[in-house]
């Protein structure tokens, strides 16, 4: 549990961090909260020769609430959990953050690290897809925006270029009811199955829905079919069953210590049904 030798860098500006990335190429990794990368380094499953610590980049911190919500990549899960403006504007954020890891990890773990690592076990990628968030990436040639729904390619692989740093996350203020429902074995665990649900309702009928699932494939699964199955309904048993069926067609879980595929498919349906019920009730 001792990492290999590495050089430690602590840049004071994004441009400086990008320059370090450019200089060291694939021998460098940026570290945010460190709760994914450092364990991987201790296991020697990751052995970057240059570690670029983003803790000095104050410009990557903070939450701004306007018509849009902007969250700096270095904002911690704890800050998301305790931000009163965010709790009002997008309560699903705190509901999800509360179910990530444990308090010690949340004091250090960041939203940027959570999404940029591309770990299918992480909760924020699915939630970002549910909210249709956009990620800002800073690179040698300036910044660009990528939709969360286009960002994740496969496990630990994203559309972020090697020389880019995720700097912020933007999404429109969500409307309607919300729920983040997660089944996990214990505190600190990744999801056995988790569902992010946002539902807009008018006159008792769903006008718009977004549904994304976590840790049920090698990438987060945005289920357009599940959302479509709810739209126009009152989220009765038949509509929920149709949404669950559509979602189950989209996921591709694998067996691990959390259980076999059959179990995961089934509980994914249970979790989604519960999330839909709670979101609809709140809408």
């Amino acid at each position: 549990m001792i990492p290999g030798v590495f050089e430690y860098h602590r840049p004071g500006a994004v441009a400086e961090a990008v320059a370090l990335l450019r200089a060291h190429g694939d021998e460098a990794r940026v570290v945010a909260g460190g709760h994914s990368l450092i364990p991987m380094m201790k296991l020697r499953m990751a052995a970057p020769e240059h570690l670029i610590d983003l803790q000095g980049l104050d410009e990557l911190r903070g939450i701004e609430i306007g018509a849009e919500i902007r969250i700096g990549a270095m904002t911690t899960q704890h800050e998301i959990l305790t931000h009163s403006g965010l709790a009002e504007a997008a309560p699903i954020m705190a509901e999800a953050a509360r179910q990530i890891a444990d308090p010690q990890v949340r004091y250090l773990g960041t939203i940027g690290g959570n999404v940029a690592n591309g770990d299918p076990g992480n909760d924020m990628p699915g939630l970002m897809q549910c909210l249709d968030a956009r990620f800002t990436l800073a690179g040698p040639d300036g910044t660009r925006e990528v939709a969360a729904r286009d960002f994740f390619e496969s496990a630990f692989m994203t559309t972020r270029e090697e020389e880019e740093i995720l700097t912020s996350i933007n999404f429109a203020r969500p409307t309607g009811g919300w729920a983040y429902e997660k089944l996990k074995r214990k505190i600190g665990d990744y999801a056995t199955a988790a569902a992010a649900v946002q539902i807009a309702v008018e006159g008792g009928k769903v006008t718009a829905a977004a549904i994304a699932m976590t840790n049920l494939s090698d990438v987060p699964v945005l289920s357009a079919g599940a959302a479509a199955a709810l739209t126009g309904t009152g989220c009765g048993p038949e509509a929920v069953k149709a949404a669950v069926d559509a979602m189950q067609a989209d996921i591709d879980p694998v067996e691990d210590n959390r259980g076999p595929v059959e179990f995961k498919r089934h509980v994914a349906g249970v979790i989604l049904a519960r999330a839909i019920a709670r979101a609809f009730e709140r809408a």
């Binding site: 056995t192 959390r258 259980g259 059959e262 179990f263 089934h266 509980v267």
Partner: peptide, 16 residues
């Protein structure tokens, strides 16, 4: 008796 094993008890008994 973790989640999936309890789930499997229920499943095998036809409770789903």
């Amino acid at each position: 008796h973790d989640h999936w094993r309890i789930w499997k008890i229920a499943h095998d008994l036809g409770l789903h």
